[in-house]
Amino acid sequence: LQLFIKTLTGKTSTVEMEPSDTIENLKAKIQDKEGIPPDQQRLIFAGKQLEDGRTLSDYNIQKESTLHLVL
Protein backbone atom coordinates (compact mmCIF):
# COMPACT_ATOMS: atom_id res chain seq x y z
CA LEU A 1 0.00 0.00 0.00
CA GLN A 2 1.10 3.51 -0.77
CA LEU A 3 1.59 5.83 2.18
CA PHE A 4 2.32 9.54 2.32
CA ILE A 5 4.87 10.80 4.83
CA LYS A 6 4.50 14.49 5.56
CA THR A 7 7.31 16.35 7.32
CA LEU A 8 7.03 19.54 9.36
CA THR A 9 8.54 21.47 6.46
CA GLY A 10 5.50 20.47 4.41
CA LYS A 11 7.41 18.07 2.19
CA THR A 12 5.56 14.87 1.34
CA SER A 13 7.26 11.59 0.43
CA THR A 14 5.62 8.44 -0.84
CA VAL A 15 6.54 4.95 0.38
CA GLU A 16 5.27 1.52 -0.63
CA MET A 17 4.58 -0.80 2.32
CA GLU A 18 2.65 -3.95 3.23
CA PRO A 19 0.00 -3.95 5.99
CA SER A 20 2.09 -6.58 7.81
CA ASP A 21 5.18 -4.33 7.85
CA THR A 22 6.25 -2.97 11.21
CA ILE A 23 6.73 0.68 12.07
CA GLU A 24 10.43 -0.20 12.29
CA ASN A 25 10.39 -1.32 8.63
CA LEU A 26 8.67 1.92 7.71
CA LYS A 27 11.30 4.00 9.52
CA ALA A 28 14.05 2.08 7.70
CA LYS A 29 12.38 2.88 4.39
CA ILE A 30 12.10 6.56 5.35
CA GLN A 31 15.81 6.48 6.21
CA ASP A 32 16.57 5.13 2.71
CA LYS A 33 14.58 7.93 1.08
CA GLU A 34 15.26 10.87 3.39
CA GLY A 35 18.50 9.97 5.18
CA ILE A 36 16.94 10.45 8.62
CA PRO A 37 18.07 7.86 11.20
CA PRO A 38 15.13 5.82 12.60
CA ASP A 39 16.00 6.77 16.17
CA GLN A 40 15.33 10.42 15.28
CA GLN A 41 11.99 9.70 13.62
CA ARG A 42 8.65 9.97 15.37
CA LEU A 43 5.66 9.01 13.29
CA ILE A 44 2.20 10.29 14.14
CA PHE A 45 -1.02 8.89 12.72
CA ALA A 46 -4.53 9.82 13.89
CA GLY A 47 -2.99 11.74 16.77
CA LYS A 48 -1.04 8.72 18.06
CA GLN A 49 2.70 8.18 18.12
CA LEU A 50 3.48 4.89 16.39
CA GLU A 51 5.55 2.28 18.23
CA ASP A 52 8.33 0.39 16.44
CA GLY A 53 7.16 -3.13 17.25
CA ARG A 54 3.63 -2.69 15.93
CA THR A 55 2.46 -3.24 12.37
CA LEU A 56 0.67 -0.89 10.02
CA SER A 57 -2.47 -3.02 10.29
CA ASP A 58 -2.33 -2.74 14.12
CA TYR A 59 -2.95 0.97 13.65
CA ASN A 60 -5.48 0.41 10.87
CA ILE A 61 -3.32 2.38 8.44
CA GLN A 62 -4.94 2.09 5.01
CA LYS A 63 -3.62 2.82 1.54
CA GLU A 64 -2.95 6.48 0.85
CA SER A 65 -2.95 7.32 4.55
CA THR A 66 -0.86 10.33 5.50
CA LEU A 67 1.55 9.93 8.40
CA HIS A 68 3.28 12.88 10.03
CA LEU A 69 7.01 12.67 10.59
CA VAL A 70 8.31 14.64 13.56
CA LEU A 71 12.01 14.87 14.37
Rank of each mutant, 00 (worst) to 15 (best):
L1H: 04
L1I: 14
L1Y: 11
L1E: 03
L1M: 13
Q2H: 12
Q2K: 15
Q2N: 11
Q2D: 04
Q2G: 04
Q2V: 15
L3I: 14
L3G: 01
F4E: 04
F4T: 11
F4N: 07
I5Y: 08
I5H: 00
I5W: 03
K6L: 11
K6Y: 08
K6F: 07
K6H: 12
K6Q: 10
T7P: 05
T7K: 07
T7N: 09
T7E: 06
T7I: 12
L8W: 15
L8T: 13
L8C: 15
L8I: 12
T9Q: 11
T9M: 11
T9N: 14
T9R: 11
T9A: 12
T9P: 05
G10L: 03
G10R: 04
G10K: 04
K11M: 10
K11W: 13
K11R: 12
T12L: 13
T12I: 15
T12K: 07
T12R: 07
T12Y: 10
S13T: 15
S13R: 10
S13N: 07
S13E: 07
S13I: 15
S13C: 13
T14R: 11
T14V: 14
T14D: 04
T14Q: 10
T14M: 14
T14N: 06
T14L: 12
V15T: 03
V15P: 00
E16N: 11
E16Y: 15
E16Q: 11
E16T: 13
M17A: 13
M17C: 11
E18Q: 13
P19Q: 08
P19H: 07
P19D: 09
P19R: 08
P19G: 08
S20F: 12
S20Q: 10
S20T: 12
D21M: 07
D21C: 04
D21Q: 07
D21Y: 04
D21N: 06
D21R: 03
T22A: 04
T22E: 02
T22M: 06
T22P: 04
T22D: 03
I23V: 12
I23H: 01
E24P: 02
E24T: 08
E24K: 12
E24G: 13
N25R: 14
N25Y: 13
N25D: 13
L26F: 03
K27P: 01
K27Q: 02
K27C: 02
K27R: 06
K27W: 03
A28S: 10
A28N: 10
A28R: 15
K29S: 05
K29C: 05
K29N: 04
K29T: 06
K29P: 00
I30V: 05
I30Y: 03
I30D: 01
I30K: 00
I30W: 02
Q31T: 09
Q31G: 09
Q31A: 14
Q31Y: 15
Q31F: 15
D32F: 11
D32E: 14
D32R: 12
D32M: 14
K33I: 15
K33G: 06
K33Q: 13
E34T: 15
E34W: 15
E34Y: 15
G35C: 04
I36M: 04
P37S: 07
P37A: 08
P37G: 05
P37F: 05
P37M: 06
P38L: 13
P38A: 15
D39E: 13
D39G: 12
D39M: 09
Q40N: 08
Q40R: 13
Q41N: 02
Q41M: 14
Q41E: 01
Q41S: 04
R42V: 14
R42P: 00
R42Q: 10
R42Y: 11
R42D: 05
L43D: 00
L43R: 00
L43N: 00
L43I: 12
I44A: 04
I44E: 07
F45M: 05
F45G: 01
A46F: 09
A46K: 14
A46L: 12
A46C: 08
A46V: 06
G47V: 02
G47D: 06
G47T: 04
G47Q: 04
G47M: 04
K48Y: 09
K48F: 10
K48M: 13
Q49S: 10
Q49R: 09
Q49G: 05
Q49H: 11
L50V: 04
L50I: 04
L50N: 00
L50H: 00
L50A: 02
L50Y: 00
L50Q: 00
E51F: 07
E51Q: 10
E51L: 10
E51I: 08
D52Q: 05
D52L: 06
G53F: 11
G53T: 09
G53R: 09
R54C: 08
R54F: 13
R54I: 05
R54P: 03
T55D: 02
T55S: 09
T55W: 04
L56R: 00
L56E: 00
L56N: 01
S57L: 11
S57V: 07
S57M: 12
D58R: 02
D58S: 14
D58N: 05
D58W: 13
Y59E: 02
Y59S: 03
Y59R: 00
Y59I: 03
N60M: 08
N60K: 09
N60Y: 06
N60G: 14
N60A: 08
I61T: 02
Q62Y: 09
Q62P: 12
Q62R: 11
Q62E: 10
K63I: 06
K63E: 11
K63T: 15
K63M: 13
K63H: 15
K63F: 09
E64Y: 15
E64I: 06
E64Q: 12
E64M: 13
S65E: 07
S65H: 06
S65Q: 07
T66K: 04
T66I: 14
T66D: 03
T66P: 02
T66L: 10
L67N: 01
L67A: 02
L67P: 02
L67K: 01
L67V: 13
L67E: 01
H68E: 10
H68P: 01
H68S: 08
H68Y: 15
H68K: 07
L69M: 07
L69V: 06
L69F: 03
V70F: 14
V70P: 01
V70R: 09
V70A: 07
L71I: 14
L71A: 08
L71V: 13
L71Q: 08
